[in-house]
Design a protein around this nucleic acid. Sequence first.
DNA 1: ATGGCATAATTGTTATGA
Length: 254
Amino acid sequence: MKIASWNVNSVKARYDRLSQWLKSARPDVLCLQELKTQEDSFPFESFEELGYNAAVYGQKTYNGVAILSREQPVQIERGFGDEDPQARMIAATIAGVRVVSVYVPNGQEIGTDKHAYKLRWLKRFTEYLEENFTPRKQLLVCGDFNIAPDDIDVAHPDAWAESVLCDPAGRAAVAKIREWGLVDVFRHQHPDAAAYSWWDYRRLSFPKNDGLRLDYILATSRLAKKCTATSIDRDARKGEKPSDHTPVFAEFDL
DNA sequence: ATGGCATAATTGTTATGA
């Protein structure tokens, strides 16, 4: 199973690029984040024509997550089933694997209400994992975590040290998710790679490769053992009207 | 020190992202 995760920064604004990319990359599963649209205006039919089913948890203007899959996704779960008003998590079972697409809150700046919400959300997500799974299950958590796990995941760590993307509390929260029993499969396969998944639209960040690795695929060890390849598709950040994020890949021999 | 760029709500401006 070839799976990818991509924060597309509006599924409607990105539709042409997204469909072209699907035609050439042909993943079995694609986790999407930042749809910025409701389910009633999600382009289900267009994805169907490309051979993909869609499980969607939409929201107007902000957030929104989805899972596209060639095989029909089942047991679809939208959100944690509590009062979180933001559409940031969707789960579905595909080929016996529980797949979760997450869009972790950005947090704006350390010390703000948004930062507190980010940390609360990560804690809630950890509880969700603890309550619903064991590390022995076949589970994948894919998405935009809005945290660069370590300094190796940042082109210029000093410049980003005070950023909410490198916040020690946020890093600790993501580390706790890994410690529960999830492996960052890209980092596991490429321990020394300086590779990024997000570049600011401003300041010529992409041509300068001033990026951060904020998007990743986490797998329980049972699945991580079956991981045959991982990569980041830097080319998808090039050209006209790109998302500020680029897709990340993992392949599993199930 | 600030803004820089992009998107969606709308049509002039704001909220948010990372």
